[in-house]
Design a protein around this nucleic acid. Structure first.
Lengths: 216, 216
DNA sequence: GGGGCAGAAACAGTATGCAGTTTAACCCCA
DNA sequence: TGGGGTTAAACTGCATACTGTTTCTGCCCC
C-alpha cells in the first residue's frame, strides 16, 4: 500500500489540488462536511496529508473549519455584496491587462468556450454552460500577467461559487452572461484594454443586479 | 507533561501567534531556518502543532517552506510590484469607506498612533515606529465596513511584510510615511472620503517609488 | 591543495494511535 | 408523545515513530 512518500508532488499537494478543483467545479455541496478520515480512506492515505490539505484550504479561505469537519463558507447576502464590490474594483483592471496580453492561441480557446456557452442557450444544459463559463474565466485570467491579482480574484470567486451556480440557472441571466462573454471576447480580440475594462465592469454590475433581484 | 489538548487555544494557535510575533518584531533573521523539531523541543510539544503553525504562517505568506526548514520569504521585485498594483486598486476605496464610517473613538485611537509614530522621527526608534504604524493601519482598516475587502488587503500586506520593514528603516521613507499618516488622519477626521482616497493613492504610490529607488 | 565521493546527519512527509471534546442518538420518565 | 439526561459515536488535536530524500562533512584520491 506504500506509495513513494517523496513522489514529485507530495500527497498533501495532490489532495489540495484535487479538493480545490472539486470546490471550484461545484463538486462540494453546501451541506457537505469534509472530514479527514473519510477523505483519507477514499484516497488510500492516512489522515495527516488530508488534514494538511484541508487546513491549507481553510487558511486560503476556500473552506472554514467547524467543530465537525470542514465546510464551504456560508456567505450572508451582505458578504456576497461585499464580494461584488471587490469584483468591481479588480476585474475591470484584470480584463484590461488580459486584453493587452492576449495571444492568438488563447483567444481561439476563449472563442471556443464562448461558442460552447452560446450553444447551451437553446439546449438549456446548465452543467455544460457552467463548464464553458469556467473555461472562459480561467482562460482570460491566465492571460493576466499579475499573478497576485489573479490569485486574489480566484480566491473570492471560490467563495461565491454557489451564488454563481444559481445565477446560471436563471434563463434571463444565462442570456446576459453569454452576451457579456461575447462582448469581452470581441474586446480581447481587438486587444482593446479600455473596452474590455468597461465591458467587464458592466458584466459585474449586471451580475450584482441579478443577485439583488433573486434575493428581493 | 500532558497539557490539556483542547485548552481554549490550541497549541497550534499559541505557537502560530508566538512565531508571528517573533517575525514581526525582527526576532527572526534572514538567514534563520525555522525547523519544527528544534522549535518543538524549545516549547516542550511535539512536532505536529509546530509544523501546523509553520505551514499556516507559510500559507499566510510570512514564511516560505524550503527543503531545509522555513525561512523569511524573499519576494522577487516583480511580485512586490504586483502587490503595489493591488494596493492602488483597493486601498483608496477602503480608505474612503473608512472615512465615511469613522467614529470619534477610533479617530482618537488613530490620532494617538500617529502621534507615537511622529515621536519616533527624532528618536529613530524603528521597532516603536513599526508598532505605531501597525496600530494606525489596523485601526483604520477596522473602520472599513467591507470585511472581504479588509481581509484581502491584510492577506497581501502580510506577504510584503519584510519589504515594509526595510522601507521603514530608511529615514527618508520614515518621514514620508508619517506625513501620509498625518494627512490620512486629517481626512478621516473630516469624514472626507474623497480626500482620504486621494491621499491613500498617493501614499501607496510613494511607497512604490521608495521601493523602486531602493532596488534599482 | 582541490575535486569528487561516500557516509552520516538533518529534515520533510506520512502513518498510526490515543486522548479529549463535541454532537447526536437514544432511552427513560413523565 | 415529548422533554431531559445519558451514553455512544464522530471528529479534532497531539504525540510518536518510521521512511526516504536532501544536504553537509570529512575523507580519499588525484
Amino acid at each position: 500500500m506504500q506509495f513513494n512518500p517523496m513522489s514529485r508532488q507530495s500527497h498533501r499537494d495532490r489532495i489540495h489540488a484535487l479538493l480545490l478543483q472539486r470546490i471550484q467545479t461545484g463538486g462540494v455541496g453546501w451541506d457537505d462536511r469534509l472530514v479527514d478520515v473519510a477523505l483519507a480512506a477514499e484516497m488510500g492515505v492516512s489522515r495527516m496529508p488530508v488534514r494538511d490539505a484541508l487546513m491549507r484550504l481553510a487558511a486560503e479561505g476556500y473552506l472554514v473549519a467547524t467543530t465537525r469537519g470542514f465546510t464551504l463558507p456560508n456567505l450572508s447576502e451582505a458578504e456576497v455584496l461585499e464580494v461584488f464590490e471587490l469584483r468591481r474594483l479588480l476585474e475591470p483592471r484584470a480584463a484590461a491587462m488580459a486584453a493587452q496580453a492576449m495571444t492568438e492561441d488563447r483567444h481561439a480557446m476563449l472563442s471556443d468556450a464562448v461558442a460552447q456557452a452560446r450553444g447551451t442557450l437553446e439546449s438549456g444544459d446548465v452543467p455544460l454552460f457552467y463548464h464553458a463559463s469556467e473555461r472562459f474565466r480561467s482562460g482570460w485570467l491566465a492571460a493576466v500577467p499579475n499573478r497576485m491579482l489573479v490569485d486574489t480574484i480566484q480566491r473570492y470567486l471560490a467563495q461565491v461559487q454557489t451564488v454563481r451556480l444559481t445565477t446560471m440557472r436563471d434563463p434571463v441571466s444565462h442570456a446576459v452572461i453569454v452576451e457579456g462573454q461575447r462582448d469581452l471576447l470581441a474586446a480581447f480580440g481587438r486587444r482593446d484594454a479600455v473596452g474590455a475594462a468597461d465591458r467587464m465592469l458592466r458584466f459585474v454590475i449586471e451580475g450584482e443586479q441579478a443577485f439583488r433581484r433573486a434575493r428581493g
